[in-house]
């Protein structure tokens, strides 16, 4: 009974819920904006990595390597606490969006590259032999075929980055975790934290299942 009163205190939960919801709003917004920016930037980065002139390709490779190696938390703290020293002052939401999408872009670029390189050379040649310009054949022939392979790992990376939005609480963004943490301090009871954990689970678990389903579907399509 003591345990339930401590971790699953109904009274506390009811009082904390509106606070958590506000945090959830920020988390979802941060997650979605990051995923959209990170995915588009990642695709562009991948095309630069594959098809730009050599020096620019090397820059893209460098970017991808660095941002895959750098912990998101370190990057986030650099953006939020270090940039002000050179006069760039970003609010916590912008800092978090920037740090998270920079990293997501690097991972997305690698996933897209694998997907594009998975399309047989003959497809590029067939499109070229019909006189289709590069961008047109990318858009109509290559990417639609690559996307099938790309979608499952892309979804998986998106889930990862959505989880990492919790890091934004470190730079004082009132996201789900920060709100839960504050509520816990205010109410002197950890139930809001449990509530936050349950909300994360409720959102992300279905997405994790979705990745499993997409992968299985691709497996079947390959087997056919």
């Amino acid at each position: 009974m003591e345990l339930i009163n401590t971790f699953f205190n109904w009274d506390v939960m009811v009082r904390a819920f509106p606070i958590l919801l506000r945090g959830l709003g920020n988390t979802v917004l941060l997650g979605c904006v990051t995923i959209v920016i990170g995915t588009i930037a990642g695709l562009l980065l991948c095309l630069v990595r594959l098809y730009a002139v050599r020096p620019i390709q090397l820059l893209a490779i460098l970017y991808i390597d660095v941002f895959r190696a750098l912990p998101i938390l370190v990057l986030l703290i650099l953006v939020y606490y270090a940039l002000p020293f050179v006069g760039i002052r970003l609010d916590s939401f912008t800092s978090a969006t920037m740090a998270l999408s920079m990293v997501l872009a690097a991972f997305t670029a690698e996933v897209c590259r694998a997907g594009i390189q998975n399309v047989p050379k003959g497809q590029f040649e067939a499109a070229a032999s019909l006189g289709m310009p590069f961008w047109k054949s990318m858009r109509k022939i290559i990417l639609p075929q690559a996307i099938r392979v790309i979608i499952p790992p892309l979804t998986s990376n998106s889930i990862s980055v959505f989880k990492d939005t919790a890091l934004a609480s470190v730079v004082a963004m009132p996201d789900l975790l920060k709100q839960a943490n504050d509520a816990q301090a205010m109410m002197a009871n950890p139930t809001p934290l449990i509530g936050a954990a349950l909300i994360y689970l409720a959102i992300l678990w279905p997405l994790v299942r979705l990745v499993g389903y997409l992968e299985a579907r691709n497996q079947r399509a390959v087997a056919r």
Partner: peptide, 24 residues
């Protein structure tokens, strides 16, 4: 020149050993 090449390719058909139809 790429632009010239694309124009020329429009008038030159090619059939490949492995067909290379667009599967999607």
């Amino acid at each position: 020149d790429l632009k010239q090449l694309n124009t020329i390719r429009q008038d030159v058909g090619m059939v490949f050993q492995h067909f290379n139809l667009f599967p999607h």
